[in-house]
Design a binder for these strands. Structure first.
Length: 106
DNA sequence: CCGATGACCAAAC
DNA sequence: TGTTTGGCCATCG
């Protein structure tokens, strides 16, 4: 891992429990970079690091528009649904229900 | 090695 | 109240 910030995002993402989802802004904030939401997406885009649940990360609207979902439409949603993540009729994640609460851990 | 970009978010006018 | 620009950092060409 060349960058610490880069790893910081991945560490936060890995802490997302199954059946829950987080937004880029949330992850960035927990990592200590509220303005670095873009970098979060890029960190996940280069998901070559390790088993990081990048599919549990969506935009604030719950839109599943990940890089690995571009070539395989529905992949991200399928993974989330498999974990029990609720979806809206719009096809977006119901963040109001499954939004990961970092304070809920302890 | 340098420039531009990218799975976004929030403050500012 | 709504639209626009700025920001952060690693990777690609």
């Amino acid at each position: 891992m060349s960058g610490q910030v880069f790893a910081a995002f991945l560490e936060v993402v890995r802490r997302i429990p199954a059946g829950k989802a987080a937004t880029y802004g949330l992850v960035a904030r927990l990592a200590g970079m509220p303005r670095c939401a873009r970098t979060v997406g890029f960190a996940l885009a280069g998901c070559r690091d390790s088993s990081v649940p990048c599919h549990r990360v969506v935009d604030r609207f719950g839109g599943t528009k990940a890089a690995f979902d571009v070539h395989a439409p529905g992949t991200q949603r399928a993974l989330l649904e498999a974990e029990g993540v609720p979806f809206r009729p719009d096809g977006t994640v119901d963040l109001e229900q499954c939004l990961w609460d970092p304070f809920s851990e302890g």
